[in-house]
Each structure stands twice: as structure tokens, then as C-alpha cells.
């Protein structure tokens, strides 16, 4: 069953002049069809302005399509009666960790979502504990979010949406403002949710190495889906990615350059271990 499915999704930003007449139309999403199955880890890649964040906001009914439809768990996001069902089904984590933490104490922030859903007090505490445990932040539960590092803040944000028991988590460039070690923390937490809790994860990013382990990738450019497939399929098309101003993961790039120099390596090498293994085969 598809958790998320978009059909012919179009979204236009309409800029208006002083009289309120439309003066300029930017098509941010151009006939996008993306389906995500339950339990999948899907990566959505794209350069700045490719429409990937606009897409994310459609999944949570923060934006409504100008054309086409978005179905979340079988519900149309245009259906106002289902709005809160949709939002509790899709947990969103945004880019800036400071601008999405509401609580003054870590555990109170994680409890914010369940409080809004009207969950009984006792269950809120259980959910907070299990969510913080899932992202490895349980020992920080009494701390002030201001005292945490960027990576830790983002893990708290993930716990905050987990506590709402969503069916799917959408991470909208969660690592864009973090340092490398913070990025690793967050990606590890996201992968852990998918592996251990079987949570559906949609990771939107422009860092290629973060989605090497995804089940499927969608590459977006100028509001269109231009490539899709497994990471191996997508990353074998090095030249095309380059044309989209996207970089392939380091090991893939090395393998690609070596191959150009005539060393017989297979396409779509993703990790350093794979690369080492393949190079050793060549000796």
C-alpha cells in the first residue's frame, strides 16, 4: 500500500503586484509523480530551487497543489476534514533546528505533538520516553534545547514527530545546517528508524552520500523528477548528475574516474568498502 502517492502534482507560486494582480508565475512543481510504499527509505535529491522542499510541504498539507493530487495514506490532502489525520500521519522535520523546537526542556518539546493530538497524560510520558530512546537522546530529556549541539537538536526534532506515531517521516534537508559529525548523527538516527522500527522515511537532501543506503531515489530538477531508481542505478549516471550540478558520492566518483582511465570497475559503486573490494579483484 502506498503511504504517499502524488499524481500529476503541479504547484505554482504566483507573485502579485501592488494591486493584487498576478504578475509572475513560477512553476515549482511540474507534473510530479512520486509513490512511496510502506516501510521504504526514499531519498529525494535536488539542487537548490529544484522544488524538493515545496514537494515536502505538500505531503503535510502545508501547501495545496495547484493541479493534480496528493494522497497520503489514501486521503486527499485537499480534503479539509482529513487535515489533522494527514498531519498526524506524516511527521515533518525541517532544516533549522532552532526554529522547530517549541519546548524549553527536551522532553516537553517531544510531548508537544502528542499534547496537540489530545493523547492522555500517562501515554504522553510513555511515548516521550520511547521516542527519545529511539533517537538515543533519552539521557538529555531534562536539558534545555539551547544547550544541545545542532545534531542533537535535530534528533530531538525527530523524536518530537516520532512521539505522534506517524506512519511516515519526512526529513526536509535536516542536515543542511549541521557540521559533518552532526550530519552523521542525524542520518544514523533516520536509518535506525527505518531498519529497527520499520518506519517509512522520506529524506530530502542535496548531500549524495546520505542516501547511498536508500531503497529508492528520486532526483528533481526545476520542479520535475528527472531520474529515479535504486541508488546504484542513479549513481551510475555520473555525467547526467554532473549536468544537474549534483555530485556523486566520493567512492562512486573515484571509481568513475578510474574507469575512465581504463581500470575495469563495475558501475554504481557506492561505498568505500565496495570500492576497495572491487579494486582488490582487479589485481
Amino acid at each position: 500500500m502506498d503511504i504517499v502517492s502524488t499524481k500529476d502534482l503541479v504547484f505554482e507560486y504566483i507573485r502579485r503586484d501592488d494591486e493584487g494582480n498576478p504578475s509572475d508565475v513560477t512553476t515549482a512543481l511540474d507534473h510530479v509523480d512520486i509513490d512511496v510504499k510502506e516501510g521504504e527509505f526514499v531519498g529525494i535529491l535536488g539542487h537548490n530551487g529544484s522544488g524538493k522542499s515545496t514537494f515536502a510541504k505538500h505531503l503535510n498539507a502545508l501547501l495545496y497543489p495547484s493541479g493534480g493530487t496528493v494522497f497520503v495514506g489514501g486521503m486527499d490532502t485537499k480534503d479539509d476534514d482529513k487535515l489533522w489525520d494527514i498531519r498526524s500521519n506524516i511527521g515533518m522535520v525541517f532544516q533549522n533546528p532552532d526554529n522547530q523546537i517549541i519546548g524549553q526542556v527536551v522532553e516537553e518539546d517531544v510531548g508537544f505533538g502528542p499534547e496537540n493530538l489530545g493523547v492522555p497524560t500517562k501515554e504522553i510520558w510513555e511515548r516521550v520516553e520511547e521516542s527519545l530512546k529511539a533517537v538515543g537522546m533519552l539521557e538529555f530529556r531534562k536539558k534545555s534545547p539551547n544547550k544541545l549541539s545542532g545534531g542533537q537538536k535535530q534528533r530531538v526534532s525527530i523524536a518530537g514527530v516520532l512521539a505522534m506515531h506517524p506512519k511516515c517521516i519526512v526529513l526536509d534537508e535536516p542536515t543542511a545546517m549541521l557540521d559533518p559529525s552532526g550530519r552523521k548523527e542525524v542520518i544514523r538516527a533516520a536509518r535506525g528508524l527505518n531498519d529497527v522500527e520499520k518506519m517509512t522515511v522520506i529524506l530530502i537532501t542535496h548531500y549524495m552520500d546520505e542516501v547511498v543506503h536508500a531503497d529508492r531515489l528520486f532526483v528533481m530538477d526545476k520542479g520535475k523528477v528527472v531520474m529515479q531508481g535504486t541508488p546504484r542505478e542513479v549513481f551510475s549516471r555520473v555525467e547526467e548528475l554532473k549536468a544537474l550540478r549534483l555530485d556523486v558520492p566520493g567512492p562512486t566518483r573515484i571509481a568513475y574516474e578510474l574507469k575512465k582511465k581504463g581500470i575495469p570497475l563495475p558501475d554504481g559503486i557506492l561505498t568505500a568498502e565496495e570500492l576497495v573490494r572491487e579494486i582488490e579483484k582487479c589485481r
Partner: peptide
């Protein structure tokens, strides 16, 4: 936006963690 995404819809109908 983050609050809306986490289903905040005003003070009514909320429960309390503490």
C-alpha cells in the same frame, strides 16, 4: 509551520504532559 505540522490547532482539545 513547524507547529502546524505537529498538529497545533489552538489551545482547545489539548492534553497536558505535565
Amino acid at each position: 509551520m513547524a507547529m502546524e505540522a505537529r498538529c497545533y490547532r489552538g489551545g482547545d482539545g489539548r492534553t497536558k504532559m505535565k
